[in-house]
C-alpha cells in the first residue's frame, strides 16, 4: 500500500470529493441534530438554539422510556427469532453441495434486494382478516368440521372466527423478522463458509455428537460472524419506522415512530433530536462491542 505522502495530489483527488460529500450531507446534518437536541422548542414549533438537557430528561420520562424499552425488547425478540430461523439456514447453505450452494445463496439474497416497503406491504395481504393466513385457517377449519360431523360430533369446532393477525405487535415482529432475516444469514454464512471443516470432523472423530460439536466447536468458532449478524438485525429492528406504521396497531409505537412524530405532526424538533441521538448512542455502543469482539478474535488465527 502506498503512503499518501508519496502521491499527495492523486490521494487528494480520490479522497476529497467523497469525503466532502459525506461531511456536508451526512455528518453536518447529524451535528445539527445533535445541537438541536440541546435546544428549546418555541411556541409555534420553532427550534431555538440553547443549552439544556431537558430534552434528554424528557426522553427518559416513564412514558417515553416505555417506548424505548418496547423498542429494545421488540428488537431483542426479533433478533432471537431471526437466529432460530436463520442459523440453520446459514448452516444449510454453507454446507450444501457445491452445485446447489450458489442457487441457495441467491434465494437468500433476493428478498434482501426487494423493496423494504413492498416486502412489508406484502404481509398485509397475508395477515389481514380476509388475508391468506386466515383463508388457510378457515379451509383447515372447514375440513376439520367436515371430519367431525362425519364421526357424528357436529359443531365441536363452532363457526370460524378469523383471527386478528394484523395491526398488532406480533405482526410488527413478524414483519421485522421477515425484513431482517437475510442480514443475519449472510454474515453467519460467510463465517461458516470459511470455517475449516476438518475442525468439525475432528470433534466428531474424537467422540462428540452433532449437538456437542455444534456447541463446543462450530458456534464458538463462528462467533464473530454470528455476533455481526445478531447486531445487524438488532440495530435494524431497533430503529425501524416503516414496519410498525404498516403492520402495527395503536400499541405498536417504537422509538423510530416517536422520532418521526416529533419531527412531523408534533413539531418538537429538539425533543425528536434528543430521541434520535439516544437511538444513535445505543447503535454506537453495539458497534463498539462488535469492534471489541472482532479485535479480540483477531488475535486467535481461526
Amino acid at each position: 500500500m502506498e503512503n499518501w505522502r508519496d502521491n499527495k495530489l492523486v490521494a487528494a483527488i480520490l479522497i476529497v470529493p467523497a469525503s466532502a460529500w459525506i461531511l456536508i450531507f451526512f455528518t453536518l446534518p447529524l451535528v445539527i441534530v445533535w445541537v438541536f437536541s440541546f435546544g428549546e422548542r418555541g411556541p409555534q414549533g420553532q427550534t431555538f438554539l440553547a443549552f439544556t438537557l431537558d430534552n434528554y430528561a424528557r426522553a427518559l420520562e416513564l412514558i417515553h422510556l416505555g417506548i424505548l424499552w418496547k423498542s429494545i425488547w421488540t428488537a431483542a425478540i426479533t433478533t432471537l427469532i431471526c437466529f432460530i430461523l436463520g442459523f440453520p439456514l446459514a448452516l444449510g447453505v454453507a454446507f450444501a453441495p457445491a452445485r446447489y450452494k450458489n442457487l441457495l445463496l441467491l434465494l437468500v439474497i433476493l428478498p434482501f434486494w426487494t423493496n423494504l416497503l413492498i416486502r412489508t406491504y406484502a404481509w398485509i395481504a397475508v395477515l389481514r382478516t380476509r388475508g391468506f393466513l386466515n383463508f388457510g385457517l378457515e379451509w383447515v377449519h372447514g375440513k376439520l368440521d367436515a371430519l367431525f360431523s362425519l364421526v357424528k360430533l357436529p359443531d365441536v369446532m363452532g363457526t370460524f372466527q378469523p383471527l386478528a393477525l394484523l395491526y398488532n405487535h406480533s405482526a410488527v415482529i413478524i414483519g421485522l423478522v421477515y425484513v431482517a432475516l437475510p442480514f443475519l444469514v449472510l454474515p453467519i454464512y460467510a463465517t461458516l463458509e470459511k470455517l475449516d471443516r476438518s475442525l468439525m470432523e475432528a470433534s466428531l472423530d474424537l467422540g462428540a455428537g452433532q449437538w456437542r460439536t455444534m456447541a463446543f466447536v462450530t458456534i464458538p468458532l463462528a462467533f464473530p460472524g454470528i455476533l455481526s449478524g445478531l447486531m445487524l438485525v438488532f440495530i435494524l429492528s431497533l430503529g425501524t419506522y416503516l414496519t410498525p406504521v404498516l403492520l402495527g396497531g395503536t400499541d405498536s409505537m417504537m422509538i423510530g415512530n416517536l422520532i418521526a412524530q416529533e419531527f412531523g405532526p408534533a413539531r418538537d424538533w429538539p425533543f425528536g433530536s434528543a430521541l434520535s441521538f439516544l437511538l444513535l448512542y445505543i447503535t454506537f455502543i453495539i458497534l463498539w462491542i462488535r469492534a471489541v469482539v472482532a479485535r479480540r478474535s483477531k488475535g486467535v488465527s481461526y
Partner: peptide, 27 residues
C-alpha cells in the same frame, strides 16, 4: 477512524439520517 466514519451511513438507523437531512435542509 476514517474508515469507520465513511461507513457510518451504511450502519446508522435510517430514521436518524432521515430526520437529520430534514433538519439540515430546513435550517
Amino acid at each position: 477512524a476514517f474508515d469507520g466514519w465513511i461507513h457510518l451511513p451504511i450502519i446508522i438507523p435510517e430514521i436518524c439520517m432521515g430526520v437529520a437531512m430534514l433538519a439540515f435542509f430546513s435550517r
